[in-house]
Simulated assay, not measured.
Amino acid sequence: MDFFPDVTLAVVAGGQGRRLSGVPKGLLKLGDRTVLERLLELSPLFAEVLLVANTPEPYARFGLRTVADVVEGKGAPGGVHAAMAGAKTAWVLAVACDMPFVMPEVVRVLLEARSPEVDAVCFTVEGRVEPLLAVYRSTLAGPWGGALQQGDPSLRELLSQCRPQLLPEEALRAVDPEMNSRVNVNTPEDLLRYGLSLP
Rank of each mutant, 00 (worst) to 15 (best):
L45Y: 10
V12R: 00
E170M: 02
F3D: 00
L133M: 11
D6K: 07
L9W: 05
P58D: 02
L192T: 14
D6R: 12
L158Y: 01
V52G: 12
G75Q: 07
E169C: 02
S115T: 07
A87W: 09
L198S: 03
G15T: 11
R19K: 15
D32P: 10
L110D: 04
G146T: 04
E157A: 13
E169F: 02
F3W: 09
D152L: 05
V129H: 00
R108S: 14
E112N: 06
F46Q: 05
R163D: 09
V95S: 01
M99T: 12
F4V: 13
R18Y: 05
D32W: 12
A134Q: 05
A47K: 14
G26I: 06
A120M: 04
A141D: 01
V71R: 03
N180A: 14
A94S: 15
R19G: 00
D98F: 03
N186F: 11
A83Y: 03
D2K: 08
K25V: 08
P164N: 09
G195H: 10
V49M: 04
N184Y: 15
G22H: 07
L51I: 12
R108E: 15
G127K: 08
V121E: 09
L50I: 08
V183I: 15
R19A: 15
G79Q: 09
V125Y: 14
V107H: 08
R61N: 04
E157V: 07
R128A: 13
S43T: 02
M1R: 06
L198K: 08
V80E: 06
K25G: 00
P104L: 05
Q161S: 12
S43Q: 08
S21Y: 10
G75L: 09
V49K: 04
L51D: 13
V118C: 02
G142Q: 07
G26C: 05
V125M: 12
A83C: 04
P104E: 05
G14Q: 09
S154N: 04
G22V: 09
V107E: 06
G22M: 07
E130T: 07
T89F: 03
V70R: 15
E37K: 06
L51W: 14
P5T: 11
